[in-house]
Design a binder for these strands. Sequence first.
DNA 1: CGCTAGATTGACTGGTCAGTCAGCCGAACC
DNA 2: GGTTCGGCTGACTGACCAGTCAATCTAGCG
Lengths: 206, 206
Amino acid sequence: MARAPAPDKRRAILDAAITVFARQGFHTARVSDVAAEAGVAYGLVYHYFDSKDQMLNELFSERWALLVEASREIRQSDAPPRDKLAGVANFIIESYRHEPELMKVIIVEVTRAANSFGRTHLPEIRQAYDLVAEIVADAQEAGEFRDDVDPNFAAMVFYGAIEQLLTGWIFDSIPSADEDYERAKRLVVETICDGLEPRPVDAVAG
Amino acid sequence: MARAPAPDKRRAILDAAITVFARQGFHTARVSDVAAEAGVAYGLVYHYFDSKDQMLNELFSERWALLVEASREIRQSDAPPRDKLAGVANFIIESYRHEPELMKVIIVEVTRAANSFGRTHLPEIRQAYDLVAEIVADAQEAGEFRDDVDPNFAAMVFYGAIEQLLTGWIFDSIPSADEDYERAKRLVVETICDGLEPRPVDAVAG
DNA sequence: CGCTAGATTGACTGGTCAGTCAGCCGAACC
DNA sequence: GGTTCGGCTGACTGACCAGTCAATCTAGCG
């Protein structure tokens, strides 16, 4: 029999780490918990990873790279700016929908950890923000968005809104049925693009 | 000589805790660091507080109560809704401006800590969010805001935007001169109320 | 004074865990 | 069958730190 087809315990450990970090939080999670969850001996974790931190770093970077990549493609597409923002929102919210535990870990432990991890990954995080800022700037140059709002600022508002939604779902303080995700996607973009105040009726259509 | 006018070591310890928690993060801060920062013996911390956690809880609740109180007053005022939102934004941003360390601790260690502290204080946190939602709902009933956006949702977007700004300042990734704070206050409200897309010119004024 | 009570001290304890390490197991290859 | 080598094991160690406590100090008070 050929050498067992890569049991990939490494991946199993990483997956277990997601579950455990999401459930208990990184700080309170013990490496032994991760090993147990993965059904693997304690020492094996250190065979594949240098440290507990490295696992978290890897989880973050792996997924964040996908977000940056997706954002880059969306930016370069020739969709209208509103659809581009919708695309980014969609990607993030779908990520949460499919892998809520991983996204929880990323949002809670990395994005928002101002000391330690947050600082380490600042450059990566900024890349994603910057891409949204560029989408806005592009739209402003094309006259499709107001040009009196700093693009970086708009990006902050956009990301802030989405992260807050994720946080709401994580805390289980806003509803999370299928339709709620869809509604949320629509509403972030709508709110940010259109604003809360009613538009003067520019065409009585209907 | 009258009994020394309450040396208030308790307060000194709490203030030291702010500095230390902000600098090192709650988890990595040692109680001995707090004691040292306060210029006080280790044991004295436990004379005034039951635990390390209790210090953080107290710091959070003390200040969050002010925010809720201010929000409540703003809601009950008869200013236009846009000014009410501006009032809340102003309160939070001014809090950060005057006590950045305390606000950093609150945002990073409590508001955004889905496990541990965040869960503990969820009810208090929600109170503040709910008040913003009510401001929006009031405005919708008065026909001053679009009524096709869920008020809770609008509140999320609003808080998300502000917290993201604070986070930007905390991480030192957006500028923080006096005028930047003022501009930020104006822009959050403007962006959220007016949206990013240009309004159709409803009056050629000027 | 002598007494009481609260403030203050800091050495010490108990428990927890990240990370180490000496060695085992089994597959391939000779 | 022996040898090698990577994957794999889990008991152990060393450091760290929250919280305890017995002792000391200080101030008012009779």
